[in-house]
């Protein structure tokens, strides 16, 4: 066994780096799915929504275990993707004068870096907006609802989407997540080495539907709240 076959060398290949991006990406997709399923409870009203939030908080150490796992996946995904992107840019330092794009994947594929950056910035803002903000203070009081008492996280979310700029930012970010996923979920099967050629149309379709569902699902929440406030007189129903 020469040194080339050492575990360290075998694990540092681009193929393993891609696998790392793919597997951490899949973990993040699972989180996105669970997060959407929880968030959609906003349509069920303050009681259900806050009960869900309370149930999550009550998980205690398990919640922190999941949070740390998610953070690790997030950081690894971004770090490896940047690492590969640097290698890829070096591999094609000289650009063509004329580019003709022929692959069956188009916009989502070409904008993975851009959508990734938008998502990264969004996550920071999003954590600041909801996870780190006071959920019982004045920002969580929806005027005219619940006898002007705090509506908890629900109230905070509700008041946040009074602002059209924030709504626009959240919708943009949701679409970026959908776009990112529509390429990622279609191509991750190549990365992990499991897809046969005849299965690719199915994988493409599933990925596009998933991306669409995520984009529409998350976007609907700020739009719903904004429309309720500005067109139907404000209070949660």
């Amino acid at each position: 066994m020469s040194d080339e076959f050492s575990l360290r060398n075998r694990l540092s290949s681009t193929v393993v780096k891609e696998l790392t991006v793919g597997l951490t990406g899949l973990m993040l997709v699972l989180f996105v799915g669970a997060h959407l399923a929880g968030n959609i409870l906003i349509y069920a009203g303050p009681a259900s929504y806050n009960a869900y939030a309370a149930k999550l908080q009550a998980m205690g150490p398990l919640l922190w275990f999941m949070r740390l796992g998610l953070l690790a996946a997030f950081v690894t995904h971004i770090g490896m993707a940047i690492n590969l992107d640097i290698v890829n840019r070096q591999a094609r330092a000289n650009r063509y004068a004329v580019n003709t794009y022929l692959g069956r994947k188009t916009v989502a594929t070409r904008t993975m870096l851009a959508s990734g950056i938008i998502i990264f910035l969004f996550v920071l803002v999003h954590l600041y907006d909801f996870a780190l903000s006071d959920k019982t203070g004045p920002a969580s009081i929806v005027p005219g609802a619940n006898n002007n008492q705090s509506l908890g996280l629900f109230g905070l979310v509700w008041n946040s989407f009074r602002d059209p700029v924030r709504v626009l930012f959240y919708v943009t970010a949701s679409c970026a997540v959908g776009f990112h996923l529509s390429h990622a979920v279609a191509s991750v099967w190549v990365t992990v080495g499991v897809l046969r050629d005849e299965d690719t149309p199915v994988a493409d379709l599933v990925a596009r539907l998933l991306g669409l569902a995520v984009a529409v699902g998350f976007s609907s929440i700020p739009i719903y709240v904004f429309v309720q406030i500005h067109f139907f007189g404000g209070g949660p129903t």
Partner: peptide, 28 residues
């Protein structure tokens, strides 16, 4: 110093012999 595969499927479209990306899957 070749780059990695980010599944643009440009190779498959350019290949004069019609080699499919599914071979990359098999390689992984």
């Amino acid at each position: 110093g070749f780059g990695s595969c980010s599944k643009h499927y440009q190779c498959e479209a350019a290949c004069p012999k019609g080699i499919k990306v599914s071979f990359i899957t098999a390689m992984k």
